[in-house]
């Protein structure tokens, strides 16, 4: 189903969900839950957006049913820890590559995915100051290194 233009701000979270469908369904579920909540705030009135949100909700309900024996889904506090650990793992991998002077597409993607997962953490409550700082840093690093590689510069 094509994404209504109003939902552009959540397209990367939805893509991350798709990429984790088999790799880590818990990550996929919470990315979609975040997209659902954010999507409802962006536009829940226009017919194309409502149709999209209803489909997304169907998908979330069926994922929850399929993973009914998974504590990361049935208990949000466990889910919170799962997403936070995953985001930190992504961040540390990219940060380690960065500090070792290894700049490549994979580390850019890890920085960016870490920042997206920190957005997702907001479904569990207000983000900690540490998470906000990590998100800002990861997003900036991803953009900066991407631009350097594109223009042939060596990142500092």
């Amino acid at each position: 189903m094509s994404l209504p233009p109003q939902f552009k701000p959540i397209q990367h979270h939805l893509r991350t969900a798709q990429e984790h469908e088999t790799r880590d369904p818990v990550v996929a579920y919470y990315c979609r839950l975040y997209a659902m909540q954010a999507g409802m705030k962006l536009d829940s009135k226009s017919p194309e957006c409502r149709k999209f949100l209803v489909k997304l909700m169907d998908q979330l309900e069926s994922m929850k049913k399929e993973m009914s024996d998974n504590e990361s889904i049935t208990q949000e506090v466990v889910g919170n820890a799962h997403i936070e650990n995953y985001a930190i793992k992504m961040f540390l991998y990219a940060d380690n590559e960065d500090r070792s002077g290894r700049f490549h597409k994979n580390m850019i993607k890890s920085f960016y995915t870490a920042s997206l997962l920190m957005d997702v953490l907001s479904v569990f409550g207000e983000l900690s100051e540490e998470n906000i700082q990590h998100r800002k840093y990861a997003r900036w690093k991803a953009t900066y290194i991407h631009n350097c590689l594109k223009s042939g510069e060596t990142p500092e």
Partner: peptide
């Protein structure tokens, strides 16, 4: 007809909100 349209839209929105709350065990 405008108000009918608005009523339908908000009813559907409520349904989504309710399904979301149920999904998150908040009902």
């Amino acid at each position: 007809t405008g108000s009918v349209g608005t009523t339908v839209a908000s009813a559907e929105q409520d349904e989504l909100s309710q399904r979301l709350a149920k999904l998150r065990d908040q009902l």
